[in-house]
Design a binder for these strands. Structure first.
Lengths: 343, 343
DNA sequence: AAGAAATTTTTACGCGCGACAAATTATATT
DNA sequence: AATATAATTTGTCGCGCGTAAAAATTTCTT
């Protein structure tokens, strides 16, 4: 490898036999220099593993080549998955993703945005906590940097929002459930923090009314993001109480459904669509484990790919195209019905 | 808020009525300046939201106040959880964690380490992929920065390794299974990438022999990290084939067990410890979802807290205490038996 | 109150790189 | 071969901050 240790671009330019400004140009865009000099630099690069000091590079930049990516909770496989997808797209676009998790905490969310601000990112992709977010503070920080929201909307924050069409997806699964059996009751937390949960509740009511059914709600206590535990605890209470208010239950999300399925199993309630089944359960989101519940969970798969792709496209368009949205763009993508064994 | 926009420390020092070098000292250690001047600065800070340019700060530093944290796969809730715990500990110590996931890819792992090197972190906490890692390249990069490995060991890399005592934990659960029923067969991938999987295999063999049983292995095909799918696919094959080779199965990890449980359910095999049960299944790791499988999964919980705490303590000791380990330290923590319904 | 000790101010330099202008090549066109 | 054009070199500045040394000031001791 290196006989001599290269300390800076000056020294590296020397061993290349090229001037420093030209080397600087090369690192900013290898195609911007003549092929012959490019080869010289690349050859030297293999000998001396020199890398520009990224702090010096960015010191005088207003915006860097990094892209902030904030999700509410990396412990949730849903967000881990979409974060990974978005990371890939950001890399493909030549930016460096910086992924931060808010750990379900509003203060952590602000801290994340704060520390990102220090990094001077080219743009920001933010899946906010939702109702729990300190919306004013979030808005203040995001005002300084091109921002696109996804998954959960926050009024007026960012230049675009991409998420799921809960109205459509809930109607889709309600229609299916009504068509194939008894009308569902809606199992949810009484006071959810996630705006999607609120939308799904409304969507459920209107989908049921549209079909001429009275919307029946099962609203359970519980706070925080430990949805499986809440679903399990409240499901157990419900099943042991003997009063199961419906033969079909649609959960506000898969994680509640996973807990509920577990409670049903332990309570001896047979879930499924077969003859011997007592209860049908469906979810929403197509959680990675939904395939492996017992029985496997009928659910709605959100169009992660579309949300991720569109979000990245938008932020790039704003940054590189200079197309700051005059009016905030909102696009909702349709979910798909995933029919499995539970409903 | 700010009437005037502060552009740099010079201007901020001016509005404080204090000289720039003193302000600089303040930001490096607020207690290093006289209380009266400290109050002046803090008062000004509330008026003008100035923040030092982190690129300028770090430009001349050999090591920064950031700490690299690399895990093999954030999509796996196990790593998401431990990463979160470690992040908290790093923050408490006054460092800035930078979390990267290798996405189960050796090249990504190297890319992560490479990009961390650019950041000049004070230290590095690395959970390597294991056998899939490009060990030579990893070692080369880690040689330049204080490094502590956790979860999976890589010979000679880093100054310390902290993980689970697979020998102990597997013996613990094997003893339990043998004590409470028929001896288990070991369900695993034929050619696992994770070094812990290899250790568990060996531990299973020796634990069984110690009890005078012939160790029976169920080694299935499959590559990659999609363990649930592999467990489900191979479990289904096994159950449908009619030949279930044992009445008790110990899986190499919970994610395989989750897939296997699902396969059993769908194949009509009754899992559990009750009278009507055909099969017992146990896992290893206490996956967040293990509580909610049907039946709930008997497993081993790794001592995440100890691993996380010890890893962070070690890296801090190396960095701040200057105590580079003369001989590489290795500590393994005991697992605990989590008895649930499946075995 | 005088002297000692601690803190702050002043002054000045350097870090590694981006960026610019002017001068000097090297390459492409005719 | 002469000219036009593109690429490179040279030189020079500035970014925002850390840091060091010497001078000035404040605070603490006794």
């Amino acid at each position: 490898m290196a006989a001599t240790k290269i300390r800076n671009m000056e020294e590296f330019a020397a061993v290349c036999g090229i001037s420093r400004p030209t080397v600087s140009k090369f690192f900013n865009d290898p195609t911007s220099v003549r092929p012959s000099t490019r080869h010289k630099i690349e050859a030297a690069l293999e000998q001396h593993d020199y890398r520009p000091n990224i702090y010096a590079i960015n010191q005088n930049r207003d915006r860097t080549k990094t892209m902030g990516l904030v999700v509410p909770n990396l412990t949730d496989p849903f967000f881990a998955g979409i974060a990974r997808m978005i990371e890939g797209l950001i890399l493909d676009a030549g930016y460096n993703p910086v992924l931060l998790s808010s750990h379900a905490g509003p203060d952590q969310e602000i801290a994340n945005l704060d520390s990102l601000r220090d990094i001077k990112p080219a743009g920001l992709l933010l899946a906010p906590l939702g109702r729990a977010s300190r919306a004013g503070d979030v808005a203040a920080i995001c005002a300084d940097v091109p921002t696109v929201l996804f998954d959960a909307n926050l009024d007026g924050v960012g230049e675009a929002f991409y998420g799921s069409d809960n109205e459509q997806s809930v109607r889709l699964i309600v229609d299916y459930l009504c068509r194939s059996g008894t009308p569902p009751a809606f199992f949810e937390m009484r006071d959810p923090v996630n705006p999607n949960a609120i939308r799904r509740r409304r969507a459920f009511v209107s989908a049921m009314e549209r079909l001429g059914h009275a919307p029946q709600m099962i609203q359970v206590d519980g706070t925080g993001w430990d949805f499986e535990a809440i679903g399990f605890r409240e499901g157990t209470r419900m099943f042991k109480g003997g009063e199961v208010p419906a033969q079909t239950i649609l959960c506000s999300n898969d994680r509640l459904a996973i807990g509920l399925l577990s409670a049903a199993y332990e309570s001896g309630v047979r879930v499924g669509i077969g003859d011997g089944a007592d209860l049908r359960i469906a979810g929403h989101d197509d959680h990675p484990f939904a395939r492996y519940t017992c029985p496997s969970l009928t659910t709605i798969s959100q169009d992660y790919t579309a949300i991720a792709t569109r979000s990245v496209e938008a932020i790039l368009d704003i940054i590189e195209g200079g197309n700051r949205r005059s009016d905030r763009e909102v696009a909702l993508f349709e979910g798909h019905l995933i029919m499995r064994g539970s409903a």
